[in-house]
Structure formats: C-alpha cells, structure tokens
C-alpha cells in the first residue's frame, strides 16, 4: 500500500507491505527520523508521541494507514537549534532532560497541549501530560511547561505588534 503524508512539512510517499505497521516504525526506520522513541509498543508510556494534524498521538499504536494524507510533526520538525520551538526553548532554559530518552515524547505532548490550552494550570498539566519519565524530571518539566506557555504568549504578542 502506498501512503502519502507530510512529515515535518515535507511530502513523503512510502510503499508499505503491511498497512497496519505502526507509524512509529515508518518514521524511525523508513524515514530515518530517530527522535521519536520506542518505549512499550502499547501506547502506555508516551515515548513515541508525535503530532498528527496537531494532535498528540502515540505512534507505536497508530497504524500507518491512518496517517495517509495527514500532516505529521516529529521532534525533528518541532524546531531547530537556530529557531527552537517555545517548548524546546523552555526545556533548555530549565535544563530538563536527564537520560533524555522520554523527552521528545513529553515535548510533543506539551506542544499539543499548548495548541489547545495556551496557558495551562497545574491541573491541566496533571491531566494531560501523562507520559512516563523514569529519571523523574517531572518537577523541571512542569516549570518548563509554564515557561513555554509564557514564551508562546510573548511570541504571539510580538507577532501581533509587528503585523
């Protein structure tokens, strides 16, 4: 089956033997974008979280056939070192990662949350950010999520002023 999808704003067309292959493995092994991680294969830990049309999706349990025609964003497409996404900028300011393995999933989940709830409360964060981090970086992550919301807001206001 042929799957066409935009990944990080680039159109990809891939031939898939089994259309039920998880999107995670297409992204990692065919498109060679290794930033999206495998953790459990059962949508239980969130390490594989990426965005499908702006929504957080656990890609280890999302068949690639559902991605046909959609826009996928992975950590590689979230921002760049030169122009980091506010979530990445906040993660850098708070020095969040330890081992770092789960962090792309958390950053993608946070980006999706901020799309819906630009200024999340602690309660919003508790209810929506439900990935697993074994190093225990939640304390810094919470600070970084609030910081990302601030950065988003100031970016939005400066854009408004400029326009």
């Amino acid at each position: 089956m042929k799957i066409s999808m935009h990944v990080n704003d680039k159109l990809h067309s891939v031939d898939i033997y089994d259309e039920n292959t998880p999107l995670l493995w297409v992204v990692r092994d065919i498109l060679d974008l290794k930033g999206t991680k495998f953790g459990c294969g059962k949508a239980a830990c969130g390490a594989c979280t990426l965005l499908v049309d702006g929504e957080a999706v656990r890609s280890c349990s999302y068949a690639v056939k559902f991605a046909n025609g959609k826009h996928i964003t992975t950590i590689e497409g979230l921002g760049t070192k030169e122009d980091p996404h506010p979530v990445q900028q906040a993660w850098i300011e708070e020095v969040v990662p330890q081992c770092g393995y789960c962090q792309p999933g958390f950053m993608m989940a946070t980006a999706a949350l901020l799309n819906k709830v630009p200024n999340p409360t602690d309660d919003d964060i508790d209810k929506n950010i439900i990935n697993v981090c074994r190093c225990g970086t939640y304390y810094r992550m919470r600070k970084a999520i609030h910081r990302a919301a601030e950065l988003n807001a100031s970016e939005a206001s400066s854009t408004t002023q400029n326009s």
């Binding site: 290794k34 930033g35 999206t36 991680k37 993660w91 850098i92 020095v95 990662p97 962090q103 792309p104």
Partner: peptide, 21 residues
C-alpha cells in the same frame, strides 16, 4: 552550567543504543 548533552536531547538527535543502525 547547563548539561553539555542538552541540545542533543532537546532536538531529538539519534544518540541512544536504540537509534543505532
């Protein structure tokens, strides 16, 4: 000082055993 592996980990670079190919 900030961790020297901070950028690699924030921008999703392929640094882990699972990423080897």
């Amino acid at each position: 000082l900030a961790r020297i592996d901070l950028n690699a980990k924030v921008f999703g670079e392929p640094i882990f055993g699972m990423d080897a190919s």
